[in-house]
């Protein structure tokens, strides 16, 4: 038996990473287009209950590799195991959700297989018979189309949020679990996992904030942060920031919003001089009302904002501050 579309599940301590379901949704939609079935593969140690859980996720099969060498995630372990799974199952497509873990091992797997990986795709589309994968370049400013030629396995990772896990099709029969017994003897694990931990608790808990004014690199220099603080004061809002603003030390790290910062969902989110890179958006897209101020009309932030102002922020912000003060 072999699989057509193989989705790689991501888990930590037996808990499924929700973005795996997004990849399954991608697999299901793709499967419909191509008339192919979807299977999941989970790696780890003692993951039988996870495997059980996965059977209800609308896949035909759940493959598992259960091995001591996979008890902690390591790139050697994952790439070594998946290489064998893929060789054995020969899927046409191998799909991943583009998580930080996938970033870490999928390229290695690709190299082992000598099969290119299209990473961080935002969607796919059909162009005639050709399946076109779309990924962003230049930090979301431009889209690029890619296709595969020849037989699989073709490796594709999808951006987190590119597919909606709510669209998961679970009506069909439960999938069957199939344990794969691979020989992991030849897989040498060179990295030793010492610890997995949550970073120091943030001093500022932005997730509780009602209103947030977030500033991005568009403020140009640390000196201009002050004007943004005035805006925040006028709105009664907390300050947030995109990553580069924190990296440069213009605001402390605990103000960072995004995939590696805090995830926030205030009633009101001002994104000032923020382009709207995916890593920022995942941290704030569930905000109630989003206001974006950016001088570039093509900035991706306008895709998710409710109100947009295309202008020089230095012209607009002082006026917004005085308008707020007046009202």
């Amino acid at each position: 038996m072999s699989v057509d579309i193989l989705v790689v599940a991501e888990q930590r301590d037996g808990v499924l990473n929700r973005s795996t379901l997004e990849a399954v949704v991608a697999g299901q939609e793709l499967g419909k287009q191509l008339g192919k079935e979807v299977a999941l593969v989970a790696l780890g140690k003692g993951i039988s209950s996870l495997a059980e859980e996965l059977t209800s996720k609308g896949v035909k099969e759940v493959l598992t590799v259960d091995d001591d060498k996979l008890s902690d995630y390591t790139p050697d372990g994952y790439a070594g195991a998946l290489q064998q799974v893929i060789a054995a199952e020969n899927p046409a497509y191998v799909l991943f959700s583009h998580t930080y873990t996938v970033r870490d091992y999928a390229p290695k797997l690709a190299m082992k297989l000598e099969r290119p990986l299209v990473s961080d795709c935002v969607r796919y589309k059909m162009d005639g018979n050709a399946l076109v994968f779309v990924r962003q370049v230049f930090q979301g400013k431009i889209d690029a189309d890619f296709t595969f030629e020849g037989d699989g396995p073709h490796l594709v990772s999808f951006q987190v949020g590119a597919f909606n896990a709510d669209n998961l099709e679970t009506s069909g029969a439960a999938g069957a679990v199939r344990n794969l017994s691979l020989s992991m003897d030849n897989v040498e694990i060179r990295t030793k996992v010492l610890d997995v931990f949550e970073g120091v608790k943030q001093e500022v808990d932005l997730s509780k904030a009602d209103r947030i004014v977030s500033v991005g690199r568009g403020v140009k220099k640390s000196e201009n942060i002050e004007m943004m603080k005035d805006l925040a004061a006028a709105l009664g809002a907390e300050m947030g920031a995109s990553r580069p603003v924190c990296d440069d030390g213009w605001l402390p790290l605990d103000r960072q919003v995004g995939s590696s910062g805090q995830t926030v969902a205030p009633k009101l989110y001002f994104a000032v001089g923020i382009s709207g890179a995916i890593q920022h958006i995942v941290g704030m897209k569930n905000s109630g009302t989003i206001v974006a101020i950016n001088k570039d009309p093509h900035a991706p932030i306008f895709d998710i904002a409710d109100y947009g102002i295309v202008a020089d922020l230095f012209e607009v912000i002082p006026e917004v501050i005085s308008a707020l003060k007046e009202s």
Binding site: K220, K221, S222, E223, E226, D248, G249, W250
Partner: peptide, 10 residues
């Protein structure tokens, strides 16, 4: 350096 550290109005 100026971008990171100098605040002229300050």
């Amino acid at each position: 350096f100026a971008k990171d550290h100098v605040n002229s109005s300050e």
